[in-house]
């Protein structure tokens, strides 16, 4: 029986194709890309060995510093926004709407599945200021405030990016945390109520501690997604105005394809991969803690 469960021919037939595709599309390119970090040039003009110069350039490049800073700033603000608003939403579903929350959950979730470019173009129009105002500026003018050239300056464009991406993703975090909250056994909450816990103290002493694991996974999942931000920024502002809102992913893409420097592009990609790797280590550590508690 053991020999059937370990049948080599079956293993080869069932696992072989997946392993071959995975190796050719993922493993080989990752190693190959690592190799690119030691050269400069591109496939059309040929490559020259560049030693470690790509790495020293990476360390000194002010554009990389700016892109790294943008990526971190975006990741921190988005993570806080997604998790805090998502948690609030989940509390609203569980404790206020209770069993009738399905319709609201479904509606709020919808933007999650809409293609990013469509959302970005929609937001360009919502926050438009020329040749005519979009709905946001119309609102501002109607309540007596000044209209804003939203996509014209780095700071306001950043606000639009964050608002858009929160709008797009918050239904997802609402559902994710909701799933964690309904796992809290009813009788624990019920007995806390009998002991006199209400509102804030019920939340502070019972709900919050019991939902810490799902909160932690949401935070890590959010960081993991936001440091790879690409589509929404590319489609909304193309990294602009100027290069004020360019994440590492987009800077890598430009370096490789607009400036045809594969070597340096691969070096930036490696930096990005290392960042993802560090976050993943945290995922594994927190996952293990989930099991032991």
């Amino acid at each position: 029986m053991k020999s059937v469960l370990g049948d080599r021919r079956a293993i080869a037939i069932l696992l072989g194709p997946a392993l071959v595709v995975y190796t050719l599309v993922m493993l080989v390119p990752v190693v190959w890309s690592f190799g690119y970090t030691f050269v400069s040039g591109n496939p059309l003009e040929g490559f020259r060995f560049a030693g470690l110069s790509n790495f020293s350039r990476l360390v000194d490049d002010p554009d990389v510093h700016a892109a790294l800073l943008f990526t971190l700033k975006y990741a921190v603000i988005m993570t806080i926004g997604q998790v805090v608003i998502g948690y609030t939403l989940a509390l609203f579903y569980v404790f206020v709407l209770r069993r009738s929350s399905t319709l609201v959950r479904t509606l709020v979730f919808f933007p999650v599945v809409v293609p990013t470019v469509a959302v970005a173009l929609l937001y360009q129009k919502i926050f438009q200021s020329a040749p005519r105002d979009g709905i946001v500026n119309e609102l501002l003018v109607n309540v007596g405030l000044d209209r804003v050239d939203w996509l014209g300056s780095g700071t306001t464009a950043f606000i639009v990016i964050v608002v858009m991406d929160i709008w797009r993703s918050v239904g997802f975090y609402g559902v994710l945390i909701y799933a964690g909250l309904i796992d809290i056994p009813d009788d624990i909450i019920e007995s806390a109520r009998i002991d006199g816990a209400r509102g804030w103290s019920l939340f502070r002493r019972i709900v919050l501690p019991l939902s810490l694991p799902i909160l932690l996974s949401s935070i890590i999942f959010s960081i993991n997604g936001t440091i790879k931000v690409f589509d929404s920024v590319l489609a909304l502002t193309n990294g602009g105005p100027g290069s004020s809102n360019t994440p590492l992913t987009l800077y890598m893409y430009r370096t490789a394809f607009a400036y045809s420097d594969y070597g340096y592009g691969a070096t930036i990609a490696l930096l990005l991969t290392i960042m993802c790797f560090i976050v993943t280590l945290f995922i594994f550590r927190s996952a293990r803690r989930d099991i032991t508690t």
């Binding site: 997946a18 392993l19 995975y22 599309v25 993922m26 493993l27 080989v28 390119p29 990752v30 190959w32 890309s33 690119y36 496939p43 993991n224 790879k228 992913t249 890598m252 893409y253 490789a256 594969y262 592009g265 691969a266 930036i268 990609a269 490696l270 990005l272 991969t273 993802c276 790797f277 976050v279 993943t280």
Partner: peptide
């Protein structure tokens, strides 16, 4: 195979293009 989950698209983009 699981390690592949964390690899961002950018890391395999250039070799695949070539």
């Amino acid at each position: 195979i699981l390690a592949g989950i964390m690899v961002p698209g950018q890391m395999i983009l250039l070799p695949l293009f070539t």
